[in-house]
Amino acid sequence: MTVMRGAAAYGRGAGAYARVGVESGVMSANPHQLIVMLFDGAQGAIRAARIHMQAGNIAEKGKAISKALDIVNNGLMAALDIEKGGEIAERLGSLYDYIGRLLLAANLHSDQESLDQAEKLLDDIASAWREIGGTGGQG
């Protein structure tokens, strides 16, 4: 019983430590880095969903896809500024909407192909975003 309580306490402590690390990263990040963190989070959730899908773990697959959807809809989509971004922001919004529909299809039908397509699109956008950050005149 004590060992189980100790393991549970360790797990909570490790989780709290990880959250502090993430929160510290978020607090010190510039807007560009925050978007990169959103892409990383969505891509990580999709990778986790794929593993759960292949293992037949439906509940965890659903949680992972829900996390990816949340990041796309409430993070990446919400960060778009249509006024300043104009046509590019509108096109990204349409692409994020499509990615969201792919993720829903992947979840509903355990469709590996939809999951792969969503991941590929996010990878392409994230790569472009990272490239902009590397050459975007931050100095």
Rank of each mutant, 00 (worst) to 15 (best):
M1Y: 03
M1V: 12
M1A: 14
V3T: 15
V3K: 15
M4I: 14
R5W: 12
G6P: 00
G6A: 15
A7C: 13
A7E: 15
A9E: 14
A9I: 11
Y10D: 07
A14T: 14
A14M: 15
Y17I: 09
A18M: 13
V20T: 11
V22H: 04
E23F: 03
S24V: 03
S24F: 08
G25T: 05
M27W: 07
S28W: 06
P31M: 06
H32A: 09
H32E: 00
L34A: 03
I35H: 06
V36D: 13
V36S: 14
V36T: 14
D40A: 08
D40K: 07
G41D: 07
A48I: 06
A48V: 10
A48L: 12
A49L: 04
R50F: 09
R50Y: 05
I51L: 14
Q54S: 08
G56M: 05
N57Q: 13
A59Y: 10
A59Q: 12
K61W: 02
K61E: 09
K61R: 13
K61N: 02
I65G: 03
I65K: 05
K67H: 11
A68Q: 04
L69W: 05
L69T: 01
L69E: 05
V72G: 01
G75N: 00
L76T: 08
M77Q: 12
M77R: 03
L80E: 02
D81E: 08
E83F: 09
E83S: 05
K84Q: 12
G86I: 01
G93Q: 02
G93K: 04
S94Q: 15
L95R: 06
L95Y: 03
Y96P: 05
Y96C: 02
G100K: 10
R101E: 03
L102M: 11
L102G: 03
L103F: 07
L103V: 01
L104M: 12
A106K: 04
A106F: 07
N107K: 11
L108S: 15
L108F: 14
H109L: 12
S110V: 00
L115S: 00
L115T: 09
D116A: 11
Q117E: 12
A118C: 09
A118F: 00
E119G: 10
L122C: 01
L122Q: 01
A126M: 01
A128C: 00
A128P: 04
R130Q: 11
E131I: 10
G133K: 07
G133D: 09
G133T: 08
T135M: 12
G136M: 00
Q138L: 12
